[in-house]
Computed example of a mutant assay.
Amino acid sequence: MAPIDLREHNPDDGIDIRPGTNKAAIIKLLYRETNLAYTPSEIRDALDLPRGTISTTLSRLHDDGLIGKTSDGLYHGFDHRDDVRRFARSLVQLDEMFTRYPNSGLGPDDVEQTGTGAKTEITRDTEAEHDTSGSEPAPADWVTGTDTDTDSGTADEDQ
């Protein structure tokens, strides 16, 4: 791989790594704290990846300029790559979302596509669907309690 000409390099270019891949897992680990560096075996153990997979993936990420490597073979994230740091942060947020909503029907393929281009249509929960106008519900509608269910469907206990 040839060096990158900084006169033509745009760090705001999109990162072409799919969530849920080994590359994404490594980026997420190394950009958690860019002051820390890891040996390939530490990365392999932390991510539970096969030995051959880790060395190949680390080499590709390093060749692409997404991670750094010290002269003694330690891999790390870059302080100056805010674009990769933002990408890593989005991976953490995705993990949190999938942990919080495990049965959402979404997968890594849906992350890069939204709207009509998404491969999986997101269905709305009909119980939570009170207003289809797209406007935000009134603050009184944000919290519901078990005592608000009456025959008329209102929460007016004071009348």
Rank of each mutant, 00 (worst) to 15 (best):
D110A: 03
D110E: 14
D110V: 02
D110L: 04
V111Y: 06
V111R: 06
V111A: 15
V111W: 07
V111S: 07
V111Q: 09
V111N: 04
E112A: 15
E112L: 13
Q113R: 09
Q113P: 00
Q113L: 14
Q113W: 04
T114E: 07
T114C: 06
T114L: 10
T114W: 05
T114M: 06
T114A: 07
T114N: 06
G115E: 03
G115K: 03
G115V: 02
G115I: 01
G115Y: 02
G115F: 01
G115S: 03
G115N: 03
G115M: 03
T116I: 11
T116Y: 08
T116C: 03
T116D: 09
T116H: 06
G117R: 06
G117W: 01
G117P: 00
G117A: 12
A118F: 01
A118N: 09
A118R: 15
A118G: 08
A118C: 11
A118S: 13
A118P: 01
K119F: 14
K119D: 08
K119P: 04
K119V: 08
T120Q: 11
T120I: 04
T120M: 06
T120G: 07
T120R: 10
E121C: 06
E121M: 10
E121F: 07
E121D: 11
E121S: 07
I122S: 09
I122T: 10
I122L: 11
I122D: 03
T123G: 10
T123Y: 11
T123F: 08
T123P: 04
T123I: 10
T123H: 11
R124T: 13
R124I: 11
R124L: 15
R124S: 15
R124C: 13
R124D: 09
R124V: 12
D125P: 03
D125H: 08
D125N: 12
T126Q: 10
E127M: 10
E127W: 09
A128H: 06
A128Y: 05
A128L: 11
E129F: 13
E129D: 12
E129M: 13
E129G: 02
H130T: 10
H130L: 15
H130A: 10
D131G: 02
D131W: 02
D131Y: 07
D131P: 00
D131A: 01
D131R: 04
T132Q: 02
T132A: 04
S133I: 00
S133Y: 01
S133N: 03
G134R: 00
G134P: 00
G134D: 00
G134F: 01
S135I: 03
E136A: 13
E136S: 14
E136P: 00
E136M: 14
E136G: 02
P137A: 02
P137E: 00
P137M: 01
P137D: 00
A138D: 15
A138R: 09
A138P: 01
A138G: 05
P139T: 02
P139Q: 06
P139E: 10
P139N: 05
A140I: 07
A140D: 15
A140W: 12
A140Q: 11
A140V: 13
D141A: 08
D141G: 04
D141E: 14
W142K: 12
W142Y: 15
W142Q: 15
W142M: 14
W142V: 13
W142P: 03
W142F: 15
W142C: 14
W142I: 08
W142R: 14
